[in-house]
Every structure is written in C-alpha cells, then in structure tokens.
C-alpha cells in the first residue's frame, strides 16, 4: 500500500466515520436514558430515508423542510412506540429488546409491499466534488460533517441547557430520585424515544441521496453503530464520536489494504478484545 493510497483511504475513512457517528448518536442517547438498545434504530433510519424520498423527491418539497419533517414525523413515531410498546412492558430490558426486534422485522417486511421491491434513489442535493488531500470527495459527503456537527451541538444544548434535558439527565443518574423530585419519568422516556428516533431519521434522511433506498438499508448501519457505541462506551456521546472515527478509519484502511470482509471481521474481533479488556468500552460508565 503506497503512502498516497494510505492518505486517500484515511480521508475516505473519516467521511465514512462521520456517517457512522450520526447513526450512533441516537442509539447511545437512548441507552444512556433507559439502558435499552434500540434494535429498531436501523428501521427508523430506513423510514427517515423514505420520508425524504416521498416528501423531497416525489412531492417536491425543499430538502431541508423534508429533512425537518422526517425528524418530526419519526420523533412522533418514537413517542408512540414508547407509549404503546416500552411503557406496557414496564421497562423490562429483555422483553423490550425482543419487542423492538419484532417491530424492526415488521417495518422491514412491510416496506417491500409499501415502497416497492426495486431499489429507490433520491437525486443529489449538493453536487460537485472537491479534492481533499489528493482524493476526490463529493460535496454531498463533505456536507455530512457540518450537519452531523450541528446535530451534536444541538443535542448537547438540549441536554445541558433545557429543563427537559435536565430531567433527562436526572433520570439517567437515578430514576427513583428523579421521580421523587417531581420529574414525570414516563413523559421524559417518551421524549428520549422521540429524540432517539428523530436522530435515526436524520441519519437516514442525510444518507438517502448518497446511497440507495431499500427496506433493509438500515441493517448494516445498525451493526456498525452497535460496534461504535460499544467501542465508545454505551451512553457516551463523546465515545460515540471517537468510536465512529476509529471504525471509519479501520473500515477504510483495512478494506483498501485487504478487502471489506477482513475489515469487518477485524472490527468485531477488536470490540470483543476491547470489552474483555475494558468491560464498559472507552468512555462508558459501569451499569
């Protein structure tokens, strides 16, 4: 592998990593709040992408309006899932997990008759390419970095500067104490579902013009996001960012040198070893 190829694959790796981060954010947020892994995250990512397909491409709304609408719609869906699935199960981690798996299967299977079986596409929103350190990157990919950044900052402000955010942090630290202080745990859990789902939808809406759309499109990003949040530590947002960048680099450099499968295998072996060394990931706190 030449030095030039190494630099190029590193640049590609960072662009892939920023996509992964976006997917991992909502997942890690929901884990921090409720200690559940949202297995439906990939399916919501898919729905976010199809929302863009219809609202922006088919019905001609402006892209950013469609983007916000996708986040709102799927945020509402998240709230609904909390009400109708999470709350009746009363927070049991394992049944919730299985229920979310069932929901995922349902959404994916229903996707084929509803959206059609052929792969769909959304025309590019940003056109053109830029030369970054000797490798051509499309502008639509470069745009992920500021948008992902804006979402991270927005999430940070929401959690740290608003009353609802304070309530979320209180629940994250101690659910019973928060309830005694008058925090409505149900409402805040609903909110965490809404924000988590909205972030998954944002990731899907952002990826729709870059990749292709099909009902199974969320599976691979979900597996990647799992790796990232374990790597970074479940519940940690800085961890998710670092994990995303590390995984993007591994995926790109190893895949360029050896091929995609060894890269994927390496990432799994890497997290198995990491967890055995540090059972809560790089930034995670003990359960």
């Amino acid at each position: 592998m030449t030095a030039a190829l190494l630099v190029q694959s590193a640049v590609i790796g960072l662009s892939i990593g920023s996509i992964y981060i976006l997917m991992a954010l909502g997942l890690t947020l929901m884990f921090g709040m409720m200690h559940i892994i949202n297995f439906a995250h990939g399916a919501v990512y898919m729905l976010g992408a199809f929302a863009i397909y219809y609202v922006y491409f088919q019905w001609g709304a402006p892209y950013f309006a469609a983007f916000v609408l996708a986040m709102l719609l799927l945020g509402a869906f998240g709230y609904l899932v909390e009400r109708s699935i999470y709350r009746p199960i009363k927070g049991g981690v394992e049944p919730t997990l299985v229920a979310l798996l069932a929901l995922t299967t349902l959404l994916q299977a229903a996707g084929y008759p509803v959206f059609g079986t052929l792969d769909k596409h959304v025309p590019p929103v940003f056109s053109g390419t830029r030369n970054v350190l000797g490798v051509m990157i499309s502008v639509e990919r470069l745009m992920i970095i500021p948008i992902a950044g804006a979402l991270v900052v927005g999430l940070y402000l929401f959690i740290n500067k608003t009353r609802m955010g304070a309530a979320m942090r209180a629940i994250e630290q101690d659910k019973e104490a928060a309830a005694l202080q008058g925090v409505n745990v149900n409402v805040i859990n609903g909110l965490a579902f809404a924000v988590g789902f909205a972030l998954a939808a944002a990731a899907g809406a952002l990826m729709a013009p870059i990749f292709k759309l099909d009902p199974m499109m969320g599976e691979q990003p979900l597996l990647k996001a799992f790796i990232i949040i374990i790597l970074g530590g479940l519940g940690s947002i800085p961890g998710a960012i670092l994990g995303g960048l590390i995984l993007g680099l591994i995926d790109s450099i190893v895949a360029t040198a050896l091929g995609a499968e060894p890269a994927f295998l390496l990432s799994f072996v890497f997290i198995i070893l990491l967890l055995l060394w540090r059972p809560t990931g790089l930034f995670g706190h003990a359960l």
């Binding site: 190829l5 490798v135 990749f211 790109s252 450099i253 895949a255 091929g259 995609a260 499968e261």
Partner: peptide
C-alpha cells in the same frame, strides 16, 4: 479482480484499489 459483500454500500475503499 475484486469481491464485495452484497450488503456493502460504500465501495470507496474497494474502488481505490481498483482504480489504482
């Protein structure tokens, strides 16, 4: 001669090798 997993959507690493 390159092979890819059917689920892959980001072909950049593979294409870097091929286009070289």
């Amino acid at each position: 001669r390159e092979f890819f997993e059917r689920v892959v959507t980001d072909f950049n690493p593979l294409l870097l090798r091929v286009l070289a």
